[in-house]
Design a protein around this nucleic acid. Structure first.
Length: 421
RNA sequence: GGGGGAAUGUCCCGAGCGGCAAAGGGGGCGGACUGUAAAUCCGCUGGCUAUGCCUUCGUAGGUUCGAGUCCUACUUCCCCCA
């Protein structure tokens, strides 16, 4: 990033201050555009899974800031491009998904954006796009004549995403190679249809985005811009959004708000300030105060991070509830009935459930074998009492108030809830 | 078209004289220490109705008391020659 550059627009000033910017094709030009109040920008999202995960949060937040600073955000679902597969940053070819799967994913992903953006017909209202709309209608010959002639294979071969695969002598199929052409074409198409002049994305998208900027110039669109956010890792270098339990999904039905809250609560010390700037809308002044906290006090900042981040995604109420559940569970050591629950028929309780099975049912362990191992390691507890006998049976006495609290380690708790069938 | 390699525990990388549930990492999980942190140390890291049984080493056959290991065919990937 250029040191001499002083942003005059709220949009760029905010993004830079908060650490969202990795690269930009033209800071001055984009700044000017943003100041004019006519900035329309889009970010593309893959539809490879039924929910986006934390990795997509940064680009979503970019769109949200754009809207808050007077721009018009266009989230784009890659209904068309997902059928092709992006090679960027991947070592191996991605499996092709069926069209039905993509459509289903698309429907389920859409809902996330409504949490962060306000949609409508107004000037700064967000509009949801889907590139299937124009990509699937493309005619191959026309595309080659009109667009294909502007792509230099020499240049594409020199792009990092391609070069890497070639250097490692890994397969790069023709359709993956075409992905970037389609993405470039998207940019131009969206510029024409919706007046977008900026495409944002993660730093791995830089090459693809800049190619779109170029294509726009050749096809005579107004000046286009590229802006990328840094690839996020935790301070210890781990990629964000992956845990053993799986990805940190944004969809509440795939990851409960309480678990989402916990994810942020467990951030490393060194990440807290950075995350507050990126994943909450708290004013920088307030974040600075939290940054001053040292030692164990930083836990307060983590709670605020967790609650604010959760509130953005799942709503204030759910966030407060998660915070309260955590407070009761961790700080009071009390049984909180709002922990994640798994239902068990009363008849099974009366008959007695083996501990091993119970933990598998609760989803805390993957198999009875793992349950056995965890018992040996001292990692399982029922109602806060360590499980020592793998043959133990949970019966009615363990279900005080109809629930039994099962814990794995110190942080993961699930309630088995007795229900009459 | 010809010749030569390679595919290992469904997270990844990677050893593996014919007796192998298979070395070693990384990652992950649990324990100790802490602050629901990091670092460090320790343990675990196929499944099950479990002193036993079942399923794993690209796919399918074969040799053998016994195959990840040997043979054959096939699939995929890589290298060299054309």
């Amino acid at each position: 990033m250029s040191d001499a550059f002083r942003p005059k627009s709220d949009f760029l000033a905010t993004l830079i201050e908060r650490g969202f910017v990795h690269q930009c094709s033209d800071f001055e030009g984009l700044d000017e555009k943003a100041r004019s109040g006519e900035l329309v920008a889009y970010v593309g999202f893959d539809c490879t899974a039924p929910s986006l995960h934390i990795g997509s949060l940064l680009p979503i937040t970019l769109l949200a800031w754009l809207q808050r600073t007077g721009g018009k955000p266009l989230p784009l679902l890659g209904g068309g491009t997902t059928r092709v597969g992006d090679p960027s940053g991947k070592d191996e070819s991605r499996k092709l998904l069926s069209i039905e799967t993509i459509e289903a994913n698309k429907a389920s992903i859409k809902t996330v954006f409504e949490k962060f953006l306000s949609f409508g017909d107004g000037k700064t209202d967000a509009v949801m796009l889907d590139n299937a709309e124009w990509l699937t209608k493309l005619n191959y010959i026309d595309f080659l004549r009109d667009v294909g002639r502007h792509f230099s294979v020499n240049r594409m071969l020199s792009m990092d995403s391609v070069k890497l695969r070639l250097e490692r002598e890994q397969e790069l199929s023709f359709i993956e190679f075409n992905y970037m052409c389609l993405q470039s074409y998207d940019f131009v198409e969206i510029a024409k249809r919706y007046g977008a002049s900026l495409q944002m994305g993660g730093s791995d998208q830089w090459g693809n985005i800049v190619m779109g900027v170029d294509l726009g110039r050749r096809l005579g669109t107004p000046q286009l811009y590229a802006l990328t956010s840094p690839l996020l890792t935790t301070s210890s270098g781990a990629k964000m959004g992956k845990t053993a339990a799986g990805a940190i999904w944004l969809d509440g039905s795939m990851l409960a708000p309480y678990e989402y809250w916990q994810y942020w609560r467990n951030s490393e010390d060194a990440d807290v300030v950075r995350f507050l700037k990126l994943f909450t809308f708290l004013p920088l002044g307030e974040i600075a105060k939290l940054a001053a906290l040292g030692g164990a006090e930083i836990n307060e900042a983590k709670k605020i991070l967790a609650t604010e981040a959760t509130a953005l995604l799942h709503g204030r109420e759910a966030a407060e509830r998660a915070a309260e559940t955590a407070r009761r569970t961790f700080e009071e050591g009390a049984l909180s009935l709002t922990l994640p629950k798994v239902a068990v028929p009363a008849s099974e309780v009366v008959a007695g459930i083996g501990v091993l099975t119970a933990f598998v049912k609760a989803g805390l362990v993957a198999s009875t074998g793992e349950a056995r191992r965890q018992i040996k390691a001292g990692g399982l507890r029922v109602n806060d009492a360590a499980v020592t006998d793998e043959k133990a049976i949970l019966g009615e006495t363990d279900f005080a108030e109809g629930v039994a609290k099962l814990s794995l380690g110190k942080k993961k708790h699930v309630l088995l809830e007795q229900v009459s069938e």
